[in-house]
């Protein structure tokens, strides 16, 4: 036997695996929709900076003027400048969208969480009531609530829209809370004396937020759409309150006089905003699903 029977030869040299290519951060994100939406939102928020005049000023001499140098998007049948109305009206439309979604989210989270934490009988009762609410046509509810609240204002219409669109989100919240409430950190918080709202705020909401986020965005979208529909039908905001919806409600007269810009301009802004929100919402939904699978 030779002395050098054992030679340490080491491990076979292997080339280091190529470093995984880092995905660019924007891969798969709705950049275009986000950008367009950003421009619209910024424009509405900052419109005071680049629009000097009063948007509701009626230049009756120039009623139904076609788009041109003086009036970028033309004027409506009452001689108001559509370019400034678009941005100022967008403010109100977006405000109603956000406020309506906020109200419906707040109602959905509280009712869903109460139902999810409650004993079986209360849970069943609340869910039956929710289903009952769901089965009443929304339009009927809106008209009914409008009648109770009286003269429509931005606040009242947000409230009406918010109060009629929380049901499906409440169901999702309830299902999530049912799963979360028996987890040990919730039990621990309860044994330390944490109350309902403490547990809701600190433990439940952070854990189910991602799964309702897309519904929040979709609620913004449907609140904007609802306001437009209502105003268009003449049961929403009065004509003096400029929104995209109330601008559209002039369409009947506009069509008769062949002033296409009166419908087309607010229509394009409305549809673009709704499409961007939809695209954002479905991205959030996919992201939430992906996270669920990875857990």
């Amino acid at each position: 036997m030779k002395d050098d029977g054992f030679v340490i030869v080491g491990v076979r040299e292997t080339p280091p695996p190529p470093a995984p290519r880092r995905e660019p951060w924007y891969r798969g994100k709705p950049l275009f929709a986000g950008g367009v939406l950003g421009v619209i939102v910024l424009g509405c928020l900052l419109c005071g900076l680049f629009i000097p005049g009063d948007p509701s000023y009626m230049d009756l001499a120039n009623a139904s003027a076609a788009p041109g140098r003086a009036f970028l998007f033309g004027t409506d049948t009452m001689g108001r400048d559509i370019f400034s109305m678009i941005w100022y009206g967008g403010r109100v439309s977006l405000l109603i969208g956000v406020a309506g979604a906020a109200i419906s989210t707040a109602v959905a989270v509280v009712l869903g969480a109460v139902s999810g934490c409650a004993p079986a009988w209360l849970d069943a009762l609340l869910m039956r009531l929710t289903e009952l609410f769901l089965s009443v046509p929304n339009l009927l509810l809106v008209v009914f609530l409008q009648a109770i609240l009286g003269e429509a204002s931005v606040l009242s219409i947000s409230l009406v829209i918010g109060l009629t669109s929380w049901t499906s989100m409440a169901k999702v919240v309830r299902t999530e809370v049912r799963q979360l409430r028996s987890s040990e950190y919730v039990v621990a918080a309860r044994s330390m004396g944490g109350g309902f709202f403490h547990i809701l705020w600190r433990h439940l909401i952070p854990n189910f937020l991602s799964s309702i986020m897309f519904m929040v965005v979709m609620n913004v979208r449907s609140a904007i759409a609802a306001e437009s529909t209502l105003s268009f039908m003449g049961i929403g905001l009065p004509l003096e309150v400029v929104t995209w919806g109330s601008m559209l409600s002039l369409s009947e007269k506009a069509l008769l006089s062949g002033a296409w810009w009166i419908i087309l301009v607010p229509g394009i802004f409305l549809v673009t905003t709704l499409l961007c929100l939809t695209s954002l919402g479905s991205y959030l939904r996919k992201a939430a699903n992906r996270k669920e699978r990875n857990l």
């Binding site: 987890s183 918080a189 403490h198 952070p206």
Partner: peptide, 21 residues
């Protein structure tokens, strides 16, 4: 792993009973 909320920072977890009470 399940008795600590994954979405809270350690300092908030430890201070939670003091906050509650």
């Amino acid at each position: 792993a399940s008795s600590l909320n994954q979405r809270m920072r350690v300092c908030d977890i430890i201070a939670e009973p003091m906050r509650i009470q």
